[in-house]
Design a protein around this nucleic acid. Structure first.
Length: 299
DNA sequence: GTCCAGGGAATCA
DNA sequence: TGATTCCATGGA
């Protein structure tokens, strides 16, 4: 249901109501670690930014009211795309739940998770920033980066900033990144931006390449992108490769607790975890990873 | 003061 | 290939 803008006073403002969705929980979606630009408001709603869209989502009964500004003019389409609303998560959860009790439990905990279709470029930069960092600080850095170099947007009388484009970061120096608090990741942002601007890595081509391993290899050539960051990009961006299995300290922890049970968790071989994940979860390893990660981290 | 955070790159065996 | 060490920063 798409209301015309004049119904809520602002010319550009639009509204969309998602009625009684089966798999949709804002906390699960926004706090499961896949994204960094959604924040809970005092009234329990969430406000976030993607592309040049600024949207607030409020739960009313079993429905979700999306209110926001939208560059394309079709908020409904933008939402359906971004929130992956055309995918049957009930089916995915049912399939994963059959694997074992651990999956069943973790899915029960994060039953409202949906994997967002995030912009590839933004996901690359965001997860380079995430290296050896914590989520509050990652969010802070991304906000400062957007405020400094991204396009200003207005919503509800407040200012928001789109994530800066490669063009907008083209001339930013390492020193300027350092001032934003990027730490040792400054040079990586600088080099990766340069590689993309220079066409050494073509994002459009990556989006069109169905071969996951080829795309992964290409991502790994970017500065600051190692195995874990590459897998996060493959899973959390619009590339949407559910077969990858990003391994960080939390995933290693939960996989060791549940399946491997090595005395020293830090000595568990990555390859061993990778093989185990592939064998147990197959093409849905990425989804399994996300349920396990969220469950182990929050519960 | 110490430890840790959704790791990566450089270095060395 | 595989293991170690260093890398800024800020909060607990």
């Amino acid at each position: 249901m798409l209301m015309e803008s004049n119904e809520i006073g602002d010319k550009k403002m639009q509204q969309y109501i998602l009625k009684n969705p089966k798999t949709f929980n804002m906390k699960d979606i926004f706090e499961c670690g896949q994204c960094f630009r959604w924040n809970e408001q005092e009234d329990g709603s969430y406000t976030g930014i993607w592309k040049e869209n600024v949207v607030n989502i409020k739960k009313e009964g079993q429905d979700y009211i999306f209110t926001g500004i939208c560059k394309s003019g079709n908020l409904e389409e933008e939402i359906k795309e971004y929130f992956d609303l055309n995918r049957d998560y009930e089916k995915i959860k049912k399939e994963l739940s059959k694997i074992d009790e651990n999956m069943k439990n973790s899915i029960k905990y994060g039953e409202g998770i949906r994997i967002l279709n995030q912009d590839l470029w933004e996901t690359i930069i965001s997860f380079i920033i995430s290296a050896n960092n914590n989520i509050p600080r990652i969010k802070g850095i991304i906000e400062r980066l957007s405020k400094e170099y991204g396009k200003k947007l207005e919503f509800n009388g407040k200012e928001y900033y789109a994530f800066p484009t490669p063009e907008q970061l083209k001339d930013v120096t390492v020193e300027e990144y350092r001032k934003l608090g990027l730490g040792f990741r400054d040079i990586r942002l600088y080099e990766t931006t340069k590689m993309i601007i220079d066409g050494k890595v073509n994002l459009k081509q990556l989006e069109q390449n169905p071969n996951t391993m080829e795309v992964r290899e290409k991502l790994l050539t970017l500065s600051g992108v190692g195995p874990k960051v590459a897998d996060c990009i493959l899973l959390f961006s619009a590339l949407k490769r559910f077969e990858v299995f990003p391994i960080d300290v939390w995933v290693r922890r939960v996989m060791n607790d549940l399946y491997i049970q090595n005395e020293d968790e830090t000595k568990v071989n990555k390859k061993q975890i990778e093989n185990l994940a592939k064998e147990k979860f197959g093409d849905l390893a990425g989804l399994a990873q996300q349920y396990l990660f969220y469950w182990r981290r929050e519960a």
